[in-house]
Simulated scan of single mutants.
Amino acid sequence: MSKVLVTGGAGFIGSNLVDQLVQDGDEVIVVDDLSMGLASNIPSSPKVTFYEHSITDHGFMKDLLLKEQFDYIYLLAAIASVADSVARPYETHQINQEANIFILEIIRQHKLPIKKVLFTSSAAVYGNNPELPKREDSTIDPLTPYAIDKFATERFVIDYGKLYNIPTVAVRFFNVYGPRQNPKSPYSGVLSLITECLKNQRVFTLFGDGEQTRDFIFIQDVLLALHLIMSNSQAVHEVYNVATGKQSSLLNIITDYQKVTDQSLSVEYLPARDGDIIHSCADITKLKGLGFNSKYTLFLGLSDYWVSASRN
C-alpha cells in the first residue's frame, strides 16, 4: 500500500484517479478548493482523506508534505479555463505554476523520499504549430497564460528532478472525456457539452464547419497511461503525450454519438472563434514504449460515457 497525494482530486480526471487508487489499495489524500471540482466526486472511503484547501496556502501544503511523507504525488490542481487565465493571468499563475514549484521546493529542501511526482500538463502547450502529429519534441508555441504556465511548470518539474535527484515526470493530456466531466465548467470538453444537449434535447452550438479534429481519449485509458508511467522506474525526467494517436472530426463524433444514443442532435453553426486550434493529434510512440495501448475506441468510450451520463 502506498500513500498518495492528489491535488485537484475532486475534479473530473482527479476524482476518477482517486477511485482507481482506492481500488488498488492505496491510501489517498485529496487537496482541492472546489473552485472547479465537486466534493460529491470524491469516493467516501476510509482510505480517502479530503482537505478543502487551496494549494496556494504554502503553510498548509508544507505541513501536509512533512507530516504525511507521501510515496507518490499527482499534481492535477489547476485553473483549467484558458479564458480565465487570460482574464486573471497572475491569479491563475499562482495556482498553475507557483504552488507546484513550492511543493517541489519543500521536497528538495527536506529531501523527502518521494517515489515519483507527476505533473499534468496539456496539449495546449503546442499552440497553433501546424505540424501533426504532435511529438513531445515538437515546437512549443503556448498562446495563453494557461499554456505558458503549463509548459513552464513542466520544465520546473523535469529540471528539479534532474538537478536535485527527485523522480519526476510530466504528461500532456489531449482531449480527455468521460464520466464527471462538468458541462457547466467554462473549460468543459466538447463531448460533455454534446452529452448535455443530447440528454436535454437542447441545441448544440458548433463553432466553425465541424471539420476541426481532436485526439479524444477516454478517462479509463488515461488512468492506464498514468499507472504505466508511475510504475515504470525508467519513466523519469520525461514528458509523455497522453492520447490515442487518432484524429476525429467533430462532425464524425456527432455522427457516432447519435448512433450510440439513437437520438439526433440539433446543431447551430456559428463562425469559428479566434484562436481556436483547427487540428490536433498526438504522436504516442513514447507512451507505447511503456506498453500503452488504448483499450477504448471512440464508439466504445462514448457508449460507456452515455450509460454513465444517463444515470445522473
Score class of each variant (00 low, 15 high):
Val31Trp: 09
His58Thr: 09
Ile29Gly: 00
Glu27Arg: 12
Val30Cys: 06
Val28Leu: 00
Val28Ala: 02
Tyr51Asn: 01
Ser54Cys: 03
Ser44Cys: 14
Ser45Trp: 08
Val48Cys: 02
His58Leu: 08
Gly37Lys: 05
Ser45Val: 00
Leu38Val: 01
Met61Ile: 10
Ser44Tyr: 14
Met61Gln: 03
Tyr51Ile: 03
Met61Glu: 00
Ser45Met: 05
Gly37Asn: 12
Ile42Asp: 14
Tyr51Thr: 03
Ala39Arg: 05
Pro46His: 09
Phe50Val: 00
Thr56Ser: 07
Asp32Gln: 11
Lys47Phe: 04
Ile42Lys: 15
Val30Thr: 00
Phe50Met: 07
Ser35Arg: 11
His58Trp: 10
Ile29Phe: 12
Ala39Asp: 09
Thr56Val: 10
Pro43Glu: 00
His53Leu: 08
Pro43Ala: 03
Thr56Met: 04
Glu52Gln: 15
Asn41Tyr: 10
Pro43Cys: 05
Gly59Cys: 06
Ser44Asp: 12
Ile42Tyr: 15
His53Pro: 01
Val30His: 12
Asn41Met: 02
Glu52Asp: 14
Ile42His: 13
Pro46Ser: 04
Val48Leu: 04
Ser54Pro: 04
Asp33Trp: 03
Val28Tyr: 10
Phe60Ile: 07
Ser35His: 08
Val31Cys: 02
Ser54Gln: 05
Pro46Val: 00
Ala39Lys: 10
Lys47Glu: 02
Met61Leu: 05
Thr49Gln: 15
Val48Lys: 11
Asp32Val: 00
Ser40Asn: 04
Gly59Met: 01
Ile55Asp: 14
Gly59Glu: 01
Glu52Phe: 14
Glu27Tyr: 08
Pro43Asn: 03
Phe50Ser: 10
His58Ser: 03
Thr56His: 01
Gly59His: 04
